[in-house]
């Protein structure tokens, strides 16, 4: 290992141990808190819920809908990946589609 690499190795450990700088974590926390607001609102609304509402929530129908949603999400995600990856790669000529001589 060259000297420069060993220095970098030391530095790397230093960097890893370092706390994120103030300019990073303060805005990040603020953003996280703002993004958390909708969830907080939902919690506030749910707390004031009566018994009837819980009956509606825990019907088998809700489970069916949960299942529907899961199936839809799975299909859409899989199909989108199947479309998007080949399109992205083929349009910009990645190696796997290179010509017979495979010059690359």
């Amino acid at each position: 290992m060259s000297p420069i690499h060993s220095i970098l190795g030391v530095r790397r450990r230093l960097l890893a141990r370092q706390q994120p700088s103030v300019v990073i974590w303060i805005p990040a926390t603020l953003i996280g808190l703002t993004a958390f607001l909708p969830l907080l609102y939902l919690l506030i609304r749910t707390v004031g819920l009566g018994n009837d509402a819980w009956d509606i929530l825990f019907r088998t129908r809700t489970l069916v809908i949960l299942g529907n949603t899961a199936v839809l999400t799975a299909i859409v995600t899989a199909a989108s990946t199947a479309i998007a990856v080949p399109v992205a790669c083929s349009r910009y000529g990645q190696t796997f589609l290179s010509d017979e001589r495979g010059q690359c």
Partner: peptide
Amino acid sequence: LPGAALTLTLLSYPYILLTVRSAL
């Protein structure tokens, strides 16, 4: 399901396309 999946796929596959393209 078929229509909903088709519509949502056509509308949302660019999310993957764009991130993959920028990664490429």
